[in-house]
Write a protein that binds this DNA or RNA. Structure first.
Lengths: 224, 224
DNA sequence: GCGCAGTTGACAACCCGTTAACAGGTCGTT
DNA sequence: AACGACCTGTTAACGGGTTGTCAACTGCGC
């Protein structure tokens, strides 16, 4: 199920959210301050972030900026009532939604579902069919000639980003950051190696790719 | 600028929002009940909907469902405090965000910006069509006679600057600085070489350019 | 320790920006 | 009208950087 990163300095809130979210089937990571939040986000690639604005150390709004520098992951902010200015600043920094403390668990869960649904592919777009293979984004499966093709996690992640932007050119730095994390923005080696692996598994002629196209100097794209 | 559809049954709120939003440069449509909201949304295709939950006639949540049947337009819901159940129902029906009444105009504006920003990448389908070719700025693709034309990074960069300023004359120094960098302001050689390459790839008669025009001594411009 | 996945390095093939050289055209000057 | 200076258009070669590919290495989990 979906991975959630919870960022809050109050242990009892971390604990409450952790228990409640796990009970609903989410994978939960917790961080108690901004530094750890950014580091965990880079390592674990959560599907959604729940972030308390009132953090010790790095300010919550700066955490949002730090995340927005490299990822579009939805961010749900927790804030105290009457902190109107903070809310506006958070939204402008790129937060997706927020919940006022004290909050009901039902409301938070509803907002998490809403945030996740926004990034989830629309139902009808979840399956991409080509003449040579079929990609099911929801099920995370690829079929070729009726047989299932196994992709490693990184290979899949790469394919996913390209397919979600099908028809569009995706810059190398963007691909690297979305698949490997913010500090990998110039490890173009990885891209070459994994594009080659993906092509070997999916392209009819890996040496003359038809779907996973590299535009020299510009980036890569998936052509359906 | 962006088109906003405001749905509320209270005339003073419609009026206040209408004035404030227009003052910020939004195009505003108003509807006083659910039926008109659905009808206006279908006719005008707003970029974002501001919807009061407590409507006469069709329930606000049903309006959300009605919209979600055919569009992903972001919906910002207005609701009274303590209507927790309504909020959850609205979010699950597909609302994107909501604001509790009474609300500050700053907060509403911030949430509108956030909602618009979420769809911005998709919305920004800047596609320029001419009789001879099509330029898709978002996908970084150029088509000519149904076939894809490949531009090198520098060629693309040059085309992009010209197209974004379509119809306007762009000075040589400005082009050189935007495409090659600040220290290249007088390398007019580059401009000639690359304008020629772009013309060769896109113009029907490269020797008599119709789209990529050089105004001697002044600069260049793209004529759609 | 075995197997899988990700990481790293090496190298050839290729692509693209740079550069130079020259032809054609325009304009001002004589 | 003739001339030359200057700007523009066109082409081709060079060299450096990027890409595709392979294989060995590392680290982790079973």
């Amino acid at each position: 199920m979906s991975r959630v990163l919870v960022v809050d300095d109050e242990p009892q809130i971390r604990r409450a959210l952790s228990i409640n979210l796990r009970a609903r089937g989410y994978d939960v990571e917790v961080a108690q301050d901004g530094e750890r939040a950014l580091e965990l986000a880079a390592r674990k690639h959560p599907d959604v972030v729940v972030l308390d604005l009132g953090l010790p150390g790095i300010d919550g709004v700066d955490v949002i900026r730090g995340l927005r520098g490299w990822t579009q992951v939805p961010i749900v902010v927790l804030s105290v009532r009457d902190a109107e200015d903070d809310k506006v600043a958070a939204l402008d920094a790129g937060a997706d939604d927020f919940v006022t403390k004290p909050f009901g668990m039902d409301e938070l869960l509803a907002r998490l579902r809403a945030a996740l649904r926004r990034t989830a592919p629309a139902e009808e777009d979840a399956v991409i069919d080509t003449a040579d293979f079929t990609i099911d984004l929801a099920a995370k499966k690829v079929q070729r000639n009726g047989e299932e093709v196994r992709l490693t996690p990184t290979e899949w992640h790469l394919v996913e980003v390209l397919v979600r932007n099908r028809g569009r050119l995706v810059a190398q730095t963007q691909l690297l950051q979305e698949v490997w994390g913010p500090q990998y923005h110039d490890e173009t080696n990885y891209l070459r190696v994994f594009m080659a692996q993906v092509r070997r598994k999916l392209e009819p002629e890996p040496a003359h790719p038809r779907y996973f196209i590299t535009e020299p100097g510009m980036g890569d794209r998936f052509e359906p």
